[in-house]
Amino acid sequence: MMKNLCVAHRGYSGKAPENTLAAVRMALALPFVRWMEIDVQLSKDGVPVVIHDFSLDRTTNGHGKVKHMDWEHIRRLDAGSWKGRAFRGEKVPSLDEVLTLASGKLRLNIELKTTGDMYPGLERAVMDLISAKGMQGEVVLTSFDAAVLQRIKELDPRFRTGLIYDSRQGDPAQKVHELNCSFLSISSARLNPKLAGLLAERGIQIMAWTVNKAKEMRRLADMHSDIMICTNRPDVWGDTFLKI
């Protein structure tokens, strides 16, 4: 079996509505899914919620910005019908709910969805939840925003951090080093054998996103066995790497 680990992107989002408990459960049902990537923001009243967009409009029947809504309002929304009738009534989960489901079963790449001062206190709220459940060793906290990663290390340097990198310019290996990160989440199109080898030599865990086709999965596997493959379609990963 190939070593390239399977990461379920926003849960099993190819089949279930992304970032919902249904997507989490479907990912957990596949024994080869070792990691899951989710996105976290704060409600108006400071509850960490699992949702990707800054707006509620695309993935729920609600409207407006996540940061303007209290948790009680968000949790009543339908976050499943857009994906299909079978998921009608699926809710936006809290981070607490997802952590409870995942604890001891798989590792989590938790992206802190913020920019600038959009969510003061997001880092501490997320870290407090993780610490309360004793899950520090089961997560990596990732962000595009260097200031977020720096704040995490200031609050508790024991937490693993990861840079999300999408630029065609610059040196991601150098940036990861500067930020004291041990994880790089990078667009699959940005990866090449030289960069993958350099990162692996430095002990940086590499996750490539978002890869849904078998051909691209094989390309990454041929490039380096340490590249984690983040996909909406864990079933395609299974068909590609678990064949005898």
Rank of each mutant, 00 (worst) to 15 (best):
T161D: 00
T161A: 02
T161M: 05
T161V: 03
G162M: 08
G162Q: 04
G162K: 03
G162N: 04
G162I: 04
L163V: 06
L163E: 02
L163I: 11
I164M: 13
I164A: 01
I164T: 00
I164E: 00
I164D: 00
Y165M: 10
Y165F: 14
Y165S: 08
Y165D: 12
Y165A: 07
Y165P: 05
Y165R: 07
D166G: 10
D166F: 10
D166E: 11
D166A: 06
S167W: 05
S167H: 04
S167F: 00
R168S: 01
R168F: 00
R168P: 00
R168T: 00
R168G: 02
Q169F: 03
Q169K: 10
Q169W: 06
Q169V: 07
Q169I: 06
Q169A: 07
G170H: 14
G170E: 12
D171A: 03
D171H: 14
D171R: 11
P172Q: 15
P172E: 10
P172C: 08
P172L: 03
A173S: 08
A173R: 14
A173L: 07
A173T: 06
Q174P: 04
Q174E: 13
Q174C: 05
Q174W: 09
K175P: 03
V176L: 09
V176G: 00
V176A: 13
V176F: 04
V176P: 00
H177Q: 13
H177G: 13
E178W: 12
E178F: 11
E178Q: 15
L179R: 08
L179M: 10
L179C: 11
L179T: 02
L179D: 02
N180H: 13
N180V: 08
C181G: 08
C181M: 08
C181P: 03
C181V: 08
C181H: 01
C181I: 09
S182T: 11
S182I: 03
S182K: 00
S182L: 01
F183Y: 12
F183R: 04
F183M: 14
F183D: 02
F183P: 04
F183Q: 07
L184V: 05
L184M: 11
L184S: 06
L184C: 06
S185L: 11
I186S: 02
I186W: 09
I186A: 10
I186F: 13
I186G: 03
S187N: 04
S187A: 12
S187P: 02
S187D: 06
S187L: 07
S187Y: 03
S188K: 13
S188D: 12
S188T: 06
S188W: 07
A189F: 06
A189P: 05
R190G: 04
R190D: 04
R190F: 00
R190L: 01
R190Y: 05
R190P: 02
L191N: 15
L191W: 12
L191G: 09
N192H: 15
N192C: 03
N192A: 05
P193M: 14
P193C: 11
K194A: 01
K194Y: 07
K194C: 04
K194M: 01
